[in-house]
Simulated assay, not measured.
Amino acid sequence: MYIYRTITKSLIVIAVALMASIGPSHAQELKTLTVALTWIPNVQFAGLWIAMDQGYFKEEGLKIKFIRGGPKTAPAAVSVAAGKAQIGYTHWLPFVDAVLRGNKFKLIAATYPQSPQGVISLAKKPILTAKDLLGSGILTPAPNAKIAVDATLRINGLNLNWKQIPAGFSPEPLIAGQGDGFIGFATNQVITMEKLGLKRNKDFYFTSFYDMGFPQFADGIFVQEAFLKSDRRVVVGFLRALARGWEKNMKNPAFAADLTIKNPAKDLGLNPAQQRRQNEIQIARMPKNPRDVLVLDRATISGPMYKAALATGRKALPEPSTIMDFDIMGEIQSGLAKK
């Protein structure tokens, strides 16, 4: 009996030791995914930061790294095409352009169904419709801003009678009277206007290009087609964790803003109040039902968004089903709903 007990105790000790040795190896076996962003780390990627912080990706067997976007950085499409990132963020027209250049990409999700880009104007000359753009001097901080104005006018059957005024990223030239409108974002320059003491819909107005008839999504998510085929389980795990991150963000906007400043953007000097306000605005622009978050709208993309791309002069667009996976997020959200 003594020998039996001794052997049993020895086996238990060995089993515990084996379990201890297995733990670290499993941690090392996490698959690393690199994500290329469209902009600098900030709260617009709230779902990503939360999923990283809360261990949602780890639960899917993933470890996430990211490549910053922003000024003087390579577009996410370049990073993904070169194999430096497996997941990339993109906007509608840049994604179309990347595909037309021959890249075998697949769009798998969209963070914001409606782009927050639009025109800021003052009360003395509100720009509320596409027709109001006619004859106006518009401050444009980036080259693609002109494309958006031209496309909006074309879609509405209007001539391109407007004046482009180069500008920086601050709307202050608009306040100084240097233009009739400023192309900015509801999640950025609109907040700047509010911080300057101006009241929206009284002192200034913001109208998105989407509301003026030029539909686009923002922060779509894409992968190489080959990667989706070979590692679909990994892609599903990434999106499932990300969806959980966005769902948590909707419940507590301040959490992601504070998390962003303390971790991924700790060296950027972002303003905490601005990040909280930005998160509130972007949450309001997302689907009301958390189960619809990240899901691609087949009808909108295949219809109005394709029409918008054609209005910009882009031609020979491939069939939507060849460059997008409309089913993957639906499958994931259905699974989450059952839990």
Rank of each mutant, 00 (worst) to 15 (best):
I3S: 11
R5I: 10
I7V: 15
T8S: 11
K9A: 14
S10P: 00
I12H: 07
A17I: 14
L18N: 08
I40P: 00
P41K: 10
V43F: 07
Q44C: 06
F45P: 01
K65M: 09
S79H: 15
V80P: 10
V80H: 02
A81F: 06
A85Y: 04
I87Y: 01
I87R: 06
D97S: 12
L100R: 13
K104S: 13
I108V: 15
Q117P: 00
S136I: 04
T140I: 15
K146E: 14
V149Y: 02
V149R: 06
L153Q: 04
L153W: 01
N156C: 07
L158D: 05
Q164L: 12
I165Y: 03
P171I: 04
L174G: 03
A176G: 00
T187V: 14
K199L: 12
K202A: 11
T207E: 12
Y210P: 00
Y210Q: 06
M212Y: 04
P215V: 04
F217M: 02
I221S: 01
A226F: 00
F227E: 02
L228I: 08
A243Y: 02
A243P: 00
G245A: 09
E247C: 04
A254F: 05
A254I: 08
F255P: 00
F255Y: 15
P264F: 07
A265D: 01
L268K: 11
L268P: 08
G269Y: 08
N271K: 04
Q274D: 11
Q275P: 02
Q282I: 15
Q282K: 12
K288S: 12
L294N: 09
L296E: 09
S302N: 10
S302H: 03
A308W: 01
L310C: 01
A316C: 03
P318M: 09
G330C: 04
G330T: 10
I332C: 07
